[in-house]
């Protein structure tokens, strides 16, 4: 690990200014569960760390208004345990508590988690050229394409990269049409969650649509667009290689609004199968206005993968992903009835 300076400003303005003042190599750090991990692997090599966790007022959880507002510095565990989130928005709570371990959820923040980098093994291994990786060393190639790609993406991959977007929370937020508030050198702006994540294309090393020195401050989840104002008929269903403490092979965030047994609206997002949090609009379309049966649920799941492009070892993700969507739909439907 390279040496780095460390400061811990107490206001967002101070943090943004510190970033602007620093030479190249400055990074914000919150919980550090991704950044410090990758620094230990010598993949991230910041020279200046600006610890944002002492910034005041950014750890609040406000569920009182039309929109749920989560301060970017709220720990994942705290948001997961919030009674309103846990009771009325199971898709959010489950996406949080099914991620990592309680220790890491205590450290990681809901804002920082949005910027978690891929878990592609070729990305994480082989610094100094053992495995080529366009994300790590732009232009070096991609060892995962044509390699051991069981865990890789089947949706949204390019000829440069098929690394999976690893998060759970961003998938749930994608289903919920969330947005983030950002401050930076150019002031404040708001970005829909769907626009925060980029497809790899020819530039897989650019993963987020954040400019240098920009800082996520708040995550907003609208509830006025939900008929009931809550998302009780929702779930985050996560299938992995063990029961807990593992990244998704396939996951589905589903928010269902059902009336008289008919689906008014289904919002579906996928994790573990795509290069970014993946909104499955094709699957949503299959369900609109329909009665939700197990058959319809699997049909919707399959629709989500119609454009999927599997590699050598991950073809199973098409079927697993479809079934995960189906199970998630049935779980959400069950909840919306109760």
């Amino acid at each position: 690990m390279r040496p780095f300076s460390y400061i811990r400003p107490t206001t967002a303005e101070e943090a943004v200014n510190a970033f602007a003042d620093a030479e190249a190599g400055a990074r914000f750090i919150a919980g550090g569960t991704t950044l410090y991990d990758l620094m230990k692997l010598n993949i991230e090599r910041p020279t200046h760390l600006i610890d944002v966790t002492a910034i005041g007022g950014l750890a609040t959880i406000d569920t009182s208004g039309d929109r749920l507002r989560f301060g970017a510095l709220a720990p994942m565990s705290a948001v997961a345990a919030d009674p309103v989130v846990a009771g009325d928005y199971p898709v959010l709570a489950e996406a949080l508590w099914k991620a990592a371990s309680q220790q890491l959820r205590n450290m990681a923040t809901v804002g920082g988690n949005l910027l978690q980098r891929t878990r592609c093994m070729y990305f994480r291994n082989g610094v100094d050229g053992v495995y080529p990786c366009n994300k790590r060393e732009p232009g070096s190639g991609c060892a995962a394409i044509g390699g051991l790609d069981r865990g890789q993406a089947v949706l949204g991959a390019s000829g440069s990269c098929n690394a999976v977007s690893p998060g759970d929370w961003p998938v749930a937020l994608t289903a919920m049409d969330a947005s983030v508030e950002i401050v930076g050198p150019a002031g404040q702006r708001r970005v829909p969650i769907a626009e925060l994540y980029r497809l790899p294309g020819d530039t897989p090393h650019i993963e987020f649509s954040l400019a240098p020195g920009e800082l996520i401050t708040v995550i907003e989840v609208p509830r006025e667009t939900l008929e009931a104002g809550t998302a009780r008929g929702s779930t985050y269903h996560k299938i992995r290689d063990r029961e807990s403490y593992a990244f998704a092979l396939a996951s589905a965030a589903v928010v269902l609004e059902i009336e008289d047994d008919q689906v008014i609206r289904a919002r579906i997002a996928l994790g573990g199968v795509a290069t970014r949090p993946w909104r499955a609009t094709e699957a949503e379309a299959v369900l609109a206005g329909q009665r939700l049966t197990p058959e319809r649920a699997i049909e919707a799941g399959r629709a989500a993968f119609r454009t999927a492009q599997p590699g050598r070892h991950n073809r199973f993700k098409l079927e697993l992903g479809a079934r995960t969507v189906a199970d998630a739909l049935l779980i959400a439907a069950e909840r919306s009835r109760s």
Binding site: T33, A100, Q103
Partner: peptide, 23 residues
């Protein structure tokens, strides 16, 4: 040393954390 096993768990400000991944 990467927050993957829990053997380093301690409490910081009353919450359990992975001390290996805490600066």
């Amino acid at each position: 040393d990467h927050g993957q096993c829990g053997a380093c768990t301690v409490h910081v400000d009353g919450r359990r954390v992975a001390s290996c991944l805490t600066l």
